[in-house]
Design a protein around this nucleic acid. Structure first.
Lengths: 331, 331
DNA sequence: GTGAAAGCGCTAACAA
DNA sequence: TTGTTAGCGCTTTCAC
């Protein structure tokens, strides 16, 4: 592999005996060139393997095609969807994506933000693992920012959020449609944004179905499977329940264990619905877990879209993306 | 949020009444400026919030600080580690990382590679989910490339690979050290690079421990849990086995199910070791799975390092990174 | 130690 | 329709 000096516009112009601007116009599909010239230029470019220099173009045109994504989410399976979604949008619009992983998006490695700003990104997408309020670092004060799966504590930036309420409603509905009536919910700690929304939707659906919401059937668990095992075991041994909505898939995992230990068959004795659609959990649990998906890909896409639009015009928007139910075998 | 025009070197120079080159020298720590001038420049830069323009610098200096990472791995939990590792290296060396997710690294969305080349990246890291040989696309012919978790079919590019053999040996050793003697292996399809290496190390360790390698105890399974369930059920019901090395964590998952259905307690009746250390599987299985880690973070780091060095000098290197055993409760 | 000046590759008025 | 000419923000000789 030998690196060789890249072909420039001047090379094309000289070879073709025309001016550099003619080449520029031809390549950028401006109107001011004859069809013939344009074709000659394009042919020559292909022949010589010309490739535009993005940096130079940005410098001269005073505009970037670079955007940034800062997130703590790359280390989870969701990260892939998020990145894919954002990238799909950017690419199909001729933009490139600079990514920085960080453990704390609100206080990202200062260097990573700095680096993006030095590259004069047109805007930054800030995404988090947990749906929550965040405080923007001051270095971001003068850059367009769109928050994904989180929102600005000061209410000054646009964001893209999952429809937790509708998701909770959908989860409950799956249980109701299966004929369950003694329906419980094992929720996340109440200080979590997701917990509030999902519960709200859950209660709503029960009420609409004419099922009285029994406070005793709504319990709290930590987000992890072992904590959920305890909560589920307690709940299921004290109450007669035929359906349970777990506020996330890991809680469902713990619930499966508890059900097994209590001799309850899923879905016969107990129907279970999760939330998140963490593929690796949901599809490997037996029976496969019915759940509600967190639409990271779509949120990434919408975030990117919003960011490029925010660019000019400066309207504050909150976009809410639906959480689709995923039917498997646990209901 | 209002975007405002960035401060340039000329602004600093004018404000300070000195030339632009003086500013440049001062900021880049060149020797040819007086201590005093340098300090004044630095102070002014801080005051005005000057931020160098990476694109302009690259253009003038004919060098980039951008590198690319193309991979199909972002959608798995491993992706996070890989990215983190690569980024750690690049950042601490003042480089930035451009990332492109793709479903097939060998035939990545042509646009994504093109985009990186237009940005004049100094080199590209190509990483795959599966350890395997890959054929480089021709567009990469004149760019430094380092392969991570895969290798060039034509043997012309450097790569960073996990030490599968040593990993297999470590897995077997965990079983041996626990006093197991009837040790089986549920391997991946033999055409997979990982399968060959892991088996090689496995047999090696048994031989060294004076345990005869029983061909009947080495069986093949697909990479997924359901296929593994069948293989494990078959193996365990026909042979007396007290330890099994599963070539990946999902196979271990299926093996857990089979063991339970056959009434075998883990680890009492059957010790199990996996491979990959997929956190979400390994730590939630009960008992938690002892396994061998695929060192993606370290591979990312080494890949980045190799890439920046490959840059000049052009030695073909194959780096092999150790796969550390992770002890949990299944042995 | 400092400044003038020539680019780096490209865009975009403006003239011709 | 084409070419000329300034820059964009920065690095880097080369004189002073």
């Amino acid at each position: 592999m030998e690196t060789r000096k890249p072909v420039t516009m001047s090379d094309l112009a000289r070879d073709l005996g025309i001016s550099r601007s003619a080449v520029s116009f031809a390549l950028n599909n401006e109107s001011q060139v004859s069809r013939e010239t344009r074709e000659r230029v394009i042919a020559k470019a292909a022949e010589l393997g010309y490739r535009p220099n993005a940096g130079a173009r940005a410098l001269a045109g005073q505009k970037t095609d670079l955007f940034g994504l800062v997130t703590d989410i790359v280390s989870t399976p969701f990260g892939g969807d998020l990145i894919a979604g954002a990238q799909e949008w950017f690419w199909s619009h001729g933009k490139s994506l600079l990514i920085a992983g960080t453990s704390t998006p609100e206080r990202p490695d200062a260097r990573s933000i700095e680096m993006m700003l030095e590259h004069r990104v047109g805007g930054i997408l800030l995404a988090t693992t947990w749906n929550r309020a965040i405080e923007l670092p001051s270095s971001l004060a003068h850059v367009p920012v769109v928050l994904v799966h989180c929102f600005d504590a000061r209410g000054e930036r646009p964001s893209v959020l999952p429809d937790e309420v509708e998701g909770g409603r959908a989860a409950a509905q799956m249980l109701i449609d299966a004929g369950r009536r003694r329906i419980a919910m094992i929720n996340l700690p109440p200080d979590m944004v997701a917990a509030r929304g999902r519960r709200h939707g859950f209660e709503d659906a029960l009420t609409n179905a004419g099922i009285e919401a029994d406070r005793d059937l709504i319990v709290t668990s930590g987000p992890e499977a072992d904590s959920a095992y305890l909560a589920a075991h307690d709940l299921l041994s004290r109450h007669e329940v035929d359906g349970v909505f777990c506020a996330n898939d890991r809680i469902a995992m713990g619930t499966y264990d508890a059900a097994r230990d209590l001799g309850l068959a899923i879905p016969r004795d107990l129907a279970v619905v999760g939330f998140d659609n963490q593929e690796i959990i949901a599809s490997y649990l037996r029976p496969a877990l019915s759940t509600v998906a967190l639409p990271f890909r779509e949120m990434g896409r919408r975030g990117a879209e919003l960011l490029t639009r925010t660019h000019d015009g400066d309207h504050l928007e909150q976009i809410v993306v639906p959480c689709p139910p995923i039917v498997r075998d646990s209901v």
